[in-house]
C-alpha cells in the first residue's frame, strides 16, 4: 500500500475535493437556473440600470485647450454631448409650448429609457409605469414621428372631431390551464382631437385573429378557434366599462388617455391557442346622457361595431 504523504490531511484533502466539486456544480446550476430568472423575479430596478457607471468626465475642456481634441476628436465630441445631455432623456424631443402639456404630469427624466423598455417588452408589467409615463403623448408610437408636426402646424381648414386609438393593441399571454391575471391597455384620443368622446368596451370572442407585429414562438401569427370553446374557457371583464376620453388638442387634457384593466380567469382550459378581444362600443345610455349634458357640443358618443380584429386582442397560448 502506497504511503500517503500526509495522512493527517488526507481526509481534509478529500473533503476539499468534494466541496470544490460541489461548488462547481452549484455554480453551473446557478448559472443555468438563476440566470434567466433574475429578470423575472428581481423587483423593478430603480430605473437607470442601463446607464453606464464609469463616469470619468468631470469637465470637458474646449477644443482649443485640450490636446485630446486633436488626438481623439470623435471621442471628444461624444464626451461633450454626454456632458450637455447625459442620456438624452431629460427633455421632450417635440418642441411645443409648455401650455400644450400643462395638464399632464411632469416629464420624467428617464422617460425615453422607460419607453424603450416597455416597447421592447423588457418590462411587460404595465403597472410598473405611473401616469407620469403613459400620460405623455410621447409614450405612444408615432407622436414624435408625425404627431408632433401636426401640433406645430395644425391644419387651419379642418378640425379633428373623432379619433381614438388603443396601445398596445395586442398581447400574447402564456397561460396555465387554470390561472388568473390582469392585462392592461391604454385608450387614447388621437392627435388633434378636440372633442370629449364617450365610449364603452365589450368582450368579444373572434373566430380568427392575426398578430400584426409579433408572432408565436413557432413563427405562426394566426389563430383560428371556435368562439364557443373560448367563451367556455375564459371569464373576461373590463374595468372601467364606460370611458370618457378628453380632448388632446390644443392641450393634452388630463383624461386624454386612460388605462384599461382586463381581468382574465382561465378555467381548466384545453391546451391550445385562443383569442379574446375587446371592442369599442357606444357608451351606456345613462353615461351618454350625463356626458352630453355636461359637455354639450363638445361631446361625441362614439364607438360602433367592428370587423376584422378587435381593438385590443389577447392571444392566449395555454399549456
Amino acid at each position: 500500500m502506497k504511503k500517503k504523504p500526509h495522512s493527517t490531511s488526507h481526509h481534509g484533502k478529500k473533503m476539499g475535493k468534494e466541496v470544490w466539486i460541489g461548488l462547481a456544480v452549484i455554480a453551473v446550476l446557478a448559472l443555468y437556473f438563476l440566470g434567466p430568472l433574475q429578470d423575472a423575479f428581481a423587483p423593478p430596478a430603480p430605473v437607470p440600470t442601463i446607464i453606464p457607471t464609469a463616469i470619468t468626465v468631470a469637465t470637458t475642456p474646449t477644443p482649443t485647450e485640450d490636446p485630446f481634441w486633436t488626438k481623439y476628436p470623435d471621442l471628444m465630441v461624444r464626451l461633450q454631448q454626454y456632458q450637455e445631455d447625459p442620456f438624452e432623456i431629460a427633455k421632450r424631443r417635440c418642441d411645443l409650448p409648455p401650455q400644450v402639456y400643462a395638464e399632464v404630469p411632469p416629464f420624467p427624466e428617464d422617460f425615453y429609457v422607460q419607453k424603450l423598455l416597455f416597447h421592447l417588452g423588457k418590462i411587460s408589467d404595465t403597472n410598473y409605469f405611473g401616469e407620469n409615463y403613459w400620460k405623455q403623448p410621447e409614450w405612444y408610437p408615432m407622436f414624435d414621428e408625425s404627431g408632433c408636426k401636426l401640433y406645430q402646424y395644425p391644419p387651419t381648414d379642418r378640425w379633428a372631431a373623432v379619433g381614438y386609438g388603443t396601445f398596445p393593441s395586442e398581447v400574447i399571454v402564456l397561460s396555465r390551464r387554470n390561472d388568473e391575471y390582469e392585462t392592461h391597455f391604454f385608450i387614447h384620443s388621437t392627435w388633434l382631437v378636440q372633442t370629449y368622446q364617450g365610449m364603452a368596451f365589450s368582450v368579444e370572442y373572434p373566430p380568427h385573429g392575426e398578430l400584426k407585429l409579433s408572432e408565436f414562438a413557432d413563427g405562426t401569427r394566426t389563430v383560428d378557434v371556435d368562439p364557443e370553446e373560448t367563451k367556455k374557457y375564459f371569464d373576461v371583464s373590463v374595468d372601467p366599462v364606460d370611458v370618457l376620453l378628453e380632448p388632446a388638442f390644443p392641450v393634452f387634457q388630463s383624461g386624454w388617455t386612460q388605462k384599461i384593466t382586463v381581468k382574465v380567469r382561465a378555467k381548466d382550459v384545453k391546451p391550445g391557442r385562443y383569442i379574446v378581444g375587446i371592442n369599442i362600443t357606444p357608451p351606456s345610455g345613462a353615461k351618454n346622457d350625463e356626458w352630453f349634458y355636461k359637455y354639450k357640443l363638445d361631446y361625441i358618443g362614439t364607438g360602433g361595431g367592428s370587423i376584422g380584429q378587435t381593438w385590443y386582442t389577447m392571444f392566449f397560448e395555454v399549456t
Binding site: M142, F167, P168, H188, V264
Partner: peptide
C-alpha cells in the same frame, strides 16, 4: 427548482407595441 415552479405557475404576458388609431377631421 422552487422559483422555477413558481415561474411556471404564473401567466407570462408579452405586450406587442401595436398602436391602432385613427382620426377623422371635418371642414373648419
Amino acid at each position: 427548482a422552487m422559483p422555477l415552479a413558481e415561474w411556471a405557475n404564473t401567466a407570462v404576458i408579452f405586450n406587442v407595441p401595436v398602436d391602432t388609431g385613427f382620426t377623422i377631421t371635418l371642414p373648419l
